[in-house]
Structure formats: C-alpha cells, structure tokens
Amino acid sequence: MSDPHSDHTEVDPITGYDTTGHDWNGIRELNTPFPKIVIWALILTFVYSVIAWVLLPSWPVGRTYVPGLLGLNQGEMAVEDFRAMDAKRDEWLARFGAEDFASLQSDDALMARAMPAAERLFQDNCAACHGSDGAGGPGFPALNDNYWFWGGDPETIAETLQFGINAGNDDTRWAQMPAFDWMERSERFAVADYVAALPGGQADETAAGAMIFADNCSSCHGDGGIGGMMNGAPSLTDASVIYGQDRATILQTLRHGRQGVMPAWGTRLTEAEINLLALYVSELSRNAAEEGK
C-alpha cells in the first residue's frame, strides 16, 4: 500500500496517509492533504466580511474611512433610539410636567400606567439609600411612614427632590443638628436620658434633662420635642428615627452633631420624573397610613 499523495510507502494504517518524514522525539506528522472544507470556510467568512465592509463603515482611507452603503453613524443611531423611546414615554409622562398633582392623582388610568415606571425609577435612583421598600436605614430616613421633616404632600416632596437637603446648591434645603460638645457631660447624659424616653411617652417633665431640653433644643425640635417646626429637625416623640434614639446614639449625635445629605435631583431627572417620584413617595406613606403605621 502506498500513499497516493507522496512517493513514500510507509503508510499510517489508520488514516491511510504517509508521514512527512519529520520526527521530533517520536512525534511525526501525517502528510494529509489540506482539507477543502477549511478553504471553503475561509472563503465563506471572507465573503461575510466583504459584505460587512461594503455595507458598514470600515477601512480607513487617508484621514477618513469607507462610510458604507447603509450610511450608518452609531452616534446618530443612539440618539435616535433614545428620542424614540422618550417620545413613547412622553405620551403619558409629559402630563406630569404640566398638570397639578390633584388632577394627576384623580386620573386613575394615568396613575395605573405611571406607577410601575415610578417604582423602577425609585429602585434605580433612591433605593440605594432609602431601601427598596422605602423603609430607610441608619442615617437614611424612612419614606414609607407618616413622619416627615419637611412634609409628605407631593408639592413639598417634589421641592425636596428638586434641590435636595444640604446638597450644596443655592436653593437647597438646609438643616443642621449642631454639636453640643461644649455641654457638660452630665448635662448631655441628662438630656439624652430625657430624649431617649420621649417616644415611649415616659419622659419625666420635671427632670433636669427636660429643663436642658427646653433651653437648648426646643427652639428647633419644638416644645417637648414634638417637631413640626419645618426646619428639618425631626420630631423626637414619634416612633421613627434616622440615626437612632437609644441613649448611646443620642450621645453620639450630641457630641458630633449631624448633617445628613440628600442629593439634589433637579440636575439629573426631568421635572416630570421628579413629580412622578414625588407622587410615588407620597403614595408610599399613604399606603403606610392605611396599614396603620
């Protein structure tokens, strides 16, 4: 038997081909003819490439490039796609930029269409701080309850969103819990005990702490800490907390002060989106009220 592709007569019994005659430490190579299918595959992929080069922007020529018969421009295509999507959304979203909250809220069909979108907007922009259900966490206030610093009606929330809190712009809401590190330690302990007892309604109004509170704190937190002064200082009598109303956390608040930052969204979201979110957040607390929170 001999290999039809060479003159050699030493043939590999399994494939029927001769070897090339090379031998490296026992490795030999068969003289298999070049497989036709590889050539066909190369031609096929090359034809695909040529078609792509003709249709799409491809080879560079001097300072420019072959633009392609389809005349595609990825920048324009992206912008067009965004515009098309925006236009589709604007069918309903535009109304949130133009109408007042009462009329928006009364349109059930509109709200049913908008609230799922608002939920995703909330998840993508707000949940990282306020929690995916709006329940907040240490340092970040709960939005799904009925306790507010600034107010829970859609108009007020929209303004909070627009300019933020302590967000470093001219119109931002500003709120600061000053540090009381100048106070005697014993006084701080006394007032902390008083404040810690406020939410339970067990606070002793005759204790030294109550006096210190009235002198130093009630100007911002209201008499007896009931809040409602619309200056960003929370009520200290209710169940909701930002940082915590246990003694240790209060002492930390008193020693170092607090100034939480809520970013301004006016530069990132459209007015319609902000109004949509404001309605969504006020909805969250309304649901909470219905559940008796």
Partner: peptide, 22 residues
C-alpha cells in the same frame, strides 16, 4: 471608538474562527 474600527474588529473575529477550528 469609531464605528469603522468596530467593523474591522468584528469581521476579523469572524474570519479568525476558521484557523481556530482548524
């Protein structure tokens, strides 16, 4: 990255399949 560079990268990647499979 300009589109034309992407097209070249894409088409050469497709042709590359042949020697790889070989």
């Amino acid at each position: 990255l300009p589109y034309w560079v992407q097209t070249l990268g894409m088409t050469f990647s497709v042709m590359l399949l042949v020697p790889s499979w070989a």
